[in-house]
């Protein structure tokens, strides 16, 4: 699945969300800016996965230009939803600048950060 807000525009910072299945783990790859205007797209994709019964999700942020508090709100809500279902959301491949944002907001107390996507996927087994 590959969805973008405005596919006709070739703007590298426009949020794009794609998903991939690895065993019983879903990878959500976001590229561009995850801000208040674009993050509903990511939320929609993740909610779709949860509704279809997926409970183990890895958020790969390697292509994010940045994530604002609106995007963090979605990660937190997703983690809470999955936690209630017995699943989890794990974060992988964050850039140093975004890792700092995670630390500044105390999200590092809530999320375990994985260096690579494969490490995050393996952590579920």
């Amino acid at each position: 699945m590959n969805i973008s807000l405005s596919p006709e525009l070739d703007m590298s910072d426009l949020l794009q969300v794609s998903t991939q299945t690895l065993g019983d783990v879903e990878i959500v790859l976001c590229t561009g800016r995850m801000d208040a205007s674009s993050c509903p797209l990511c939320e929609k994709v993740i909610q779709g996965l949860i509704k279809s019964g997926k409970q183990r999700i890895v958020f790969n942020g390697s292509g994010l230009s940045y994530i604002s508090s609106a995007g963090l709100r979605i990660l937190l809500a997703t983690k809470k939803d999955l936690s209630h279902l017995g699943g989890d959301l794990r974060l992988a491949c964050l850039t140093p600048a975004i890792r700092d944002v995670i630390t500044m907001t105390g999200f590092n107390r809530i999320f375990t950060l994985y260096e690579s996507e494969s490490e995050a996927v393996a952590s579920f087994s």
Binding site: S69, A70, L72, R73, L76, T105, G106, R109, I110
Partner: peptide, 17 residues
């Protein structure tokens, strides 16, 4: 910003950032 997952709120996070 020190609360756990269940108690965590995101209001005010933007200004904090």
């Amino acid at each position: 910003i020190t609360s756990n997952l269940e108690d965590r709120q995101v209001g005010g996070l933007g200004v904090h950032l």
